[in-house]
């Protein structure tokens, strides 16, 4: 019984990591750069929702605030690419990486100025009470997180497989030059991917804030999500999600069964092991070009 509860809360945490990792991988596949502000995107998405829906701010109904926040974050991601990142086209990857690290600082600072540095709770209808299933008591929030993540993943999968734009996004990330030759407007497609990763981050943020209080430093858990993305294989969307789940599940079990000092490093120990034994990650899609 105990094990099931640990597993569910681990999976719920893992879903949040997985969604942030998904954002990492989306950006990485499209632009071959790592967006180190992805965790801060998540935090910002949570605070935007909180600002729209909490009583002391705009006090909109949650079911309006949440989609609105997702839209705002999608737009934020797209604008970021349009106004800043596109101008780094042709620069080294390092420039983009440093820029996103700096961007993370800026977002944290701005969020602190607007919403304060104290932890706050999102008034989310996902966060009420517990459900009891055959003697196992589960947090409602945990169940909601898992369900939403499954739905989002499924719709992303459908989007990438079935729509023309989704196919074009895959094409642009697999072979940018050839995508140009097909008449795909690659830069705009990349902007849309930034938008998509902003939206995913917003969903992750709403889910994360439904599980507990948030403060502007919440984005630092992006580092764990980064580890998750590497464990799953940095080029693979299902891998990112799986990596998130693995990290999420390991945490509570390690906290329960290992000595205090060891539990915190468990995800990173796994990261090291994966890097040593399967450097492309557990679910990598590596295909070398035929010559």
């Amino acid at each position: 019984m105990d094990g099931v509860q640990l597993l569910v809360s681990g999976l719920a945490n893992g879903c949040v990591y997985g969604l942030i990792a998904l954002g990492f991988v989306l950006i990485y596949k499209a632009t071959e750069a790592v967006n180190f502000a992805q965790g801060d995107f998540m935090m910002l998405g949570a605070f935007v929702t909180l600002g729209l829906t909490n009583a002391e701010y705009l006090h909109l109904p949650f079911w309006i605030a949440a989609p609105l926040a997702i839209l705002i974050m999608a737009f934020f991601g797209y604008l970021l690419d349009l106004l800043i990142l596109r101008h780094l086209f042709g620069q080294s990857q390092t420039a983009v990486v440093i820029l996103t690290i700096a961007l993370g600082f800026v977002i944290r600072f701005v969020a602190g100025v607007i919403w304060g540095h104290e932890p706050q709770t999102l008034e989310s209808p996902l966060a009420f009470g517990d459900v009891s299933l055959g003697g196992v008591v589960l947090g409602m929030a945990d169940v909601a997180v898992i369900v939403v993540t499954v739905l989002l993943t499924w719709s992303l999968y459908q989007f990438f497989q079935r729509t023309k734009l989704g196919l074009a996004m895959q094409a642009a990330s697999q072979n940018q030059m050839a995508a140009y030759f097909m008449g795909i407007p690659v830069k705009r497609v990349q902007g849309l991917i930034w938008g998509l990763s902003g939206a995913t981050a917003a969903v992750a943020g709403i889910l994360f804030a439904s599980k507990g209080a948030i403060d502007p430093n919440a984005g630092l858990l992006g580092i764990k999500a980064f580890a998750a993305a590497v464990i799953g294989g940095f080029g693979s969307l299902p891998g990112a999600l799986a990596g998130g789940l693995i990290v999420g599940v390991i945490e509570p079990f390690a906290a329960r069964y290992l000595a205090a000092g060891y539990s915190q490093i468990a995800p990173y120990a796994l990261l090291l092991a994966v890097l040593v034994f399967r450097p492309h990650g557990l679910f990598s899609q590596v295909r070398t070009k035929k010559v």
């Binding site: 196919l167 697999q174 072979n175 995508a179 899609q285």
Partner: peptide, 14 residues
């Protein structure tokens, strides 16, 4: 320069 992870059909659609 094909799209290596997409199917032949998807390559043609693109």
């Amino acid at each position: 320069e094909v799209f290596p992870l997409l199917s032949v059909d998807e390559n043609l659609s693109l």
